[in-house]
Nucleic acid binder design. Structure first.
Lengths: 233, 233
DNA sequence: TGTACATCAGTGAACGCGCGTTCACTGATGTAC
DNA sequence: TGTACATCAGTGAACGCGCGTTCACTGATGTAC
């Protein structure tokens, strides 16, 4: 239905994209806090008030960038699965490939990464639209763990007493076919993956880790083993 | 030498502290990007230009807050070691206690936490003064691993080929008495601890982890095991 | 196919705001003799 | 102990800046008959 459009509709799509591109450029140059509607409008060749035809406020522009960023990492993670390389059965290799894709995207787009995985932007609260895109990376990781569990059935050690109810809730909520212990490990490892990436992107590894690629790969592999993935199919 | 001071020196210390306190209050209310010298001065009861007697610029005030924040988490981590509880020999329990102290501090001071472990403040680059305070938590953790290794001698699996030179450099740099594999694991686990904390503080666990205390404790324990710590002495 | 009207994109001026930093100054506190 | 001078904290006005958002408007593009 959207395939045939009038000039107006086409122009609207192109200009919306141009605004977001310029906004991303400013994001990369100055950070989210300094993203200014006026500067974007200036650069795009419009008067600042004209932007309000496309985004009702600065926050809405920010939201659009956030959604795009989540979608971009999500896509990067998903595509790393399709890439030739490890067979479908080498679960640990697929896991590592996904982790590397996330890291590569983050290093290539540090400010967009900061927008979604850094400190929340002050005064801005993410609307509902972001929670779908935000979970794409996690879904890819869960998928791999699911495949591996179906094939090999390796589960981490049982969860401690006090965590059991929460573990069962987690499993029921987003991984009903996995044992609760794996659901818990999965969530922990998911956050830990971003710990590794954030420390690298945000500079915490300066003067600590020099040769970062092999370091990350080793750490990511270890995370995979923490959720029951085994090397070599 | 600083113990006896004139009224001027004492006033200077007190007012400097009052400025930082008010700045921290604004940090908690609005975030680092909105920290404004003028607003701080207003609240402290001075004219804005008077602040320049205490901090030569906004960035210097920010730096002072960053150093204080690193010192605060560092102190929290160190004090958790002195607290009564696990004996000196239960390394895993001590490890977990330190992790919990870091988490508790972060949850109690989310904006200060964001200042040091969130996205870097745009346009601000941390000076040398911050790197000492920044490493205090890591030093506490390394200390525990060192104790445990001296007592039990458990090391993680050997590092892969490509990482060996970097692993040896790491060990030589900040843990000469540990095997390289442990130094690598230590750095990875250090970043992963902050991954867990950041996801909780920054809201990434909303609708994912509900009962967070036991979840964190279990995950922190697992991290400890990843650096060779064993339960029960 | 042509005309009348509705929709929409973009303009330009304005509102009201707060910011970091500089500067010449006043007056109080400290120091040296 | 008393005086003369230096140091320092705080004032108030000013500079120059950019921001988000609103509003009445012009003129072009689309739509219905």
């Amino acid at each position: 239905m959207t395939s045939v459009q009038g000039a107006r509709a086409r122009a609207r799509i192109e200009i919306t994209a141009a605004i977001k591109d310029e906004a991303r450029r400013q994001l990369a140059a100055e950070g989210a806090a300094k993203l200014s509607l006026r500067a974007v409008a200036r650069e795009v060749g419009m008067v600042s008030s004209a932007l309000y035809r496309y985004f009702p406020s600065r926050d809405d522009l920010l939201t659009a960038l956030i959604v795009d960023a989540y979608d971009a990492v999500g896509t990067a993670a998903e595509q790393s699965l399709d890439a030739p390389g490890p067979g479908r059965a080498d679960h640990l290799a697929r896991w590592t490939a996904v982790c590397q894709a996330v890291r590569a995207w983050a290093l290539a787009h540090p400010h967009e990464y900061a927008l979604i995985y850094g400190s929340p932007v002050p005064g801005y609260s993410a609307p509902q639209d972001t929670i779908g895109p935000a979970s794409r990376v996690a879904l890819v990781l869960i998928g791999i763990v699911r495949d591996a569990y179906a094939a090999d059935g390796v589960a981490p050690p049982p969860v401690p007493e006090g965590l059991r109810p929460e573990a069962e809730r987690m499993a029921a909520d987003f991984a009903p076919d996995l044992p609760p212990a794996l659901a818990v490990a999965m969530v922990a490892v998911w956050s830990q993956l971003f710990g590794l990436v954030s420390f690298e992107v945000f500079g915490q590894f300066n003067r600590v880790v020099e040769d970062r690629e092999p370091f990350f790969t080793a750490a990511a592999g270890r995370l995979g083993r923490d959720v029951g993935l085994l090397p070599r199919p």
